[in-house]
Design a protein around this nucleic acid. Structure first.
Lengths: 347, 347
DNA sequence: TTGTACGCGTTATCAG
DNA sequence: CTGATAACGCGTACAA
């Protein structure tokens, strides 16, 4: 059995509670006994038992992570690694640990969260996604359990602390950029329409069209359930089978964009001379693609970092106000967009 | 305060210990009281407290993950996401949770591990790397704490359960493949020489040369500390400044290979006609690179999955024997290797 | 400033 | 088959 607080107490000739107070650096303990106790701890190689501490103090110093339902695909997207990077830095600074649960089905996932929460495994939770009508979100809210989310809540925006980009603006700017290049037939290829990111970007796209008096074509909008390359491929075949094909595309994820590029290349449609593409996330892929993709850097690492920090603030301050943190984005111009060749003739 | 076992006991008119036994599905409890207790649990919405359970049973059902020291870079490499994918599936099947610690310095990392171990936070640990003279490894061994590692231990191979590829063979095959194409001036660009993966692959490379009576050129061997693109770029400038430049390269990581490709392209050295490249890991990059890289698929997801499973076996079976699990690899041929043009003339 | 005693929510041992 | 009771290791009123 490991060294406990009692062993230390015995060696230092004090009561266990005194040792406990020394650990907590309680100011009401004399420096002399503190030193004495610390020496005893050193000598025995004492390390506090986190589990016992958690039970007594009702706090674990662990933060739970909830990955989106389609966990398998999520791991493949560079978003995962980057957000983990930021999260890990954020929690590490404050001496918290990260815990993950995953599940293959929606139900398993939900149960995993319940176990984390009601099982007392974690002090708070970070949702790595935001979607419409999320049971997990509702559950956390109904139990009043501390959590923050990455992405904009679909409902109750003002009541949920979250870290997000201004996806509306980002998509609007992206679209305006294409319009500025003379494009008017602009397609939108997004991820699942249940995700708020997708919706926000779609709205930004629509707003830009409207402000520039370009009529919206519903069949220029495609949603691909998977945030993967396959999604992009399917989207292209739908988009380019119509009568008038778009001359430019907004794609909400680099990975999907990759599929799009693949398909277009196979169809011998040149990028950017025939179709311009602008995508989101600025993953390494974006740079590697042929042609290199113009993409919007949403600073995913920072997204994770801020999420971690703001959750910890919620946990450590009695009534921390609800916050909304917006991480800036940047358009990274590469070679996937060109001036529209035909806008003059077509209308 | 949450519902406890006592509340359930009261409602079901039994002792708390009985409730505990029902949870554990103890066979010595009558079906009748089981049903009664379960109804009470249902009615109250009871969920067992994991922390209390952990304290009493001295087991947390949590597995700790140790990332390599250069954590920042590690997150950027697709290896991270893939291995996490496998790990998460492996632990999820057996109802364990994953916990991560990270640290910016070696010392922080070490302390993180000590906290996990001595703090009783985790039942076992998975090391996501293997290197020479690892303090953490020595610590775990000295405390006799259950752990498995991904990669081959540098020492005590027969005493440490680990999951690995046959990196020696993989590199040997890769080299032989190049030799088969007529190459004799084959360079080796590896990651840190402190990692056993690097060493194993280097040995495989050397063995292949030797068996084919090709003399080893020490200045054809470059180590890049970072598993990143920058590493590849530096390596190239060293390699191609000598008198006789290699006509083929073994690169131990796709990300490094990417840097190599970049640099060679900038130097207007054509791949594969002037230099052939074969790399490891078969990340998405490999396929996307221009030209697409011939790479060795080491099945990273499986590496993680098996690591999780074997650790859990160690945890759940009294004296599970030490195991060594080898995950198969496959050469994925793309377009980065060609028949050597000059081997006939040069010797 | 320090010690005593109890509670945190379970599991496990030992009776009955 | 079930019920007391004692751990598990620590935090914390309360008392001294």
């Amino acid at each position: 059995m490991a060294i406990t607080i009692k062993d230390v107490a015995k060696l230092a000739n004090v009561a266990p509670s005194t040792v406990s107070r020394v650990i907590a650096n309680n100011p009401r303990i004399s420096e002399k006994t503190k030193k004495c106790v610390r020496e005893a701890m050193e000598q025995l190689g004492y390390h506090p038992n986190f589990i016992a501490r958690s039970l007594a103090s009702q706090s674990t110093k662990v933060i739970g992570l909830v990955l989106p339902p389609s966990t398998g695909a999520f791991f493949q997207n560079p978003f995962f690694a980057e957000v983990m990077h930021g999260l890990s830095e954020g929690v590490h600074e404050k001496h918290y640990a990260l815990q993950m649960t995953t599940g293959t089905t929606e139900e398993e996932l939900f149960n995993g969260v319940v176990q984390m929460v009601q099982g007392g495994r974690v002090d708070g939770i970070i949702l790595l996604y935001s979607r419409i009508n999320d049971d997990i979100l509702n559950y956390l809210r109904s139990r009043n359990f501390p959590f923050v989310m990455i992405g904009k809540p679909y409902e109750h925006v003002a009541k949920i602390t979250h870290v997000d980009n201004d996806n509306f603006l980002a998509a609007k700017e992206a679209t305006e950029y294409l319009i500025g290049l003379g494009h008017e037939n602009i397609g939108f290829i997004g991820g699942s329409p249940n995700l708020t990111v997708t919706l926000d970007r779609l709205h930004g796209y629509k707003a830009a069209l409207q402000e520039n008096d370009i009529s919206l074509q519903e069949d220029y909008i495609i949603h691909s359930e998977q945030f993967l390359r396959e999604g992009g491929q399917k989207a292209v075949s739908k988009l380019f089978s119509g009568t008038i094909s778009p001359t430019a595309l907004i794609v909400t994820d680099d990975l999907i964009a990759l599929g799009v590029v693949n398909s277009l290349t196979e169809m011998a449609i040149d990028i950017p001379s025939q179709v311009s593409i602008i995508s989101f996330n600025n993953a390494l892929f974006a740079e590697m693609s042929r042609p290199p993709l113009t993409s919007i850097n949403i600073n995913i690492v920072e997204l994770g970092y801020q999420a971690a920090r703001s959750l910890i603030q919620v946990l450590e301050n009695e009534n921390e106000p609800v916050k909304r943190i917006i991480i800036p984005h940047q358009l990274v111009v590469r070679n996937s967009c060109a001036v529209s060749q035909k806008n003059v003739f077509e209308r």
